[in-house]
Amino acid sequence: MSPGATGGRLDLDKVTLWIGPRQLFEPLTLSLAAGTIASIMGPSGSGKSALLAWIAGVPIPAFRATGRVVLDGRDVTDLAPENRRIGLVAQDDRLFRHLRVGENLEMALPAGEPVAKRHQLAEKSLTQLGLAGFQHRDVAGLSGGERARVSLLRAMLAEPLAVLLDEPFSKLDLPLRSQIRQGFLDYIRNRCVPALIATHDSADAQTAGGPVHILAGPPGILDGF
């Protein structure tokens, strides 16, 4: 397994979300090459989180979605999340509380490697994001920034073909924020996969460097808020 070998292309074709008869934003169409980190911006309630979840295949019971998701030329819109190979780093903490930090990462590694090798890979990836020695830490004791980084590592170790990040830096304190953000985005770029970041902070989008899409409500709909 070497970094940078997994990339592909993520295409969204006229994707939009509905709550009942209400359309949340104008249909979104974009095409991301491997190594590109695009941003989606929009006010809270604009449906960013739900959009990312839907792209990853996670059920979003309150919403209805239209449009297609195409990964490396393969239409994955109707596939179950486990069959899409799209990593999702959610805004809220989804680390597994019954496992330690290292075990969370090992669970994400593909099967087949011997136990010792898995330990080693997990340890190495922690070091890459400045978390050396965190392997046996309890996830409950992590700070917001540490959680965000472990979540990203876990998503990336599963070798996704694309990765989606939902407000990954919102929980970081400002002094740390730019430093961690840089390391974080560099790590993704090194892995050479298309990435999509949902954020409300234009600094995030700028650092990501890729195209920025603003989720705009259809005229007259969002004005009511």
């Binding site: 486990e82 899409r84 999702l88 597994f96 669970m107 876990r154 998503a155 599963a158």
Partner: peptide
Amino acid sequence: RDLAAARTLGYTPAKAWLK
């Protein structure tokens, strides 16, 4: 949420639930 996270890591619903 945990199940969704495990499934985006590639786990089938049953394995995700069990693990």
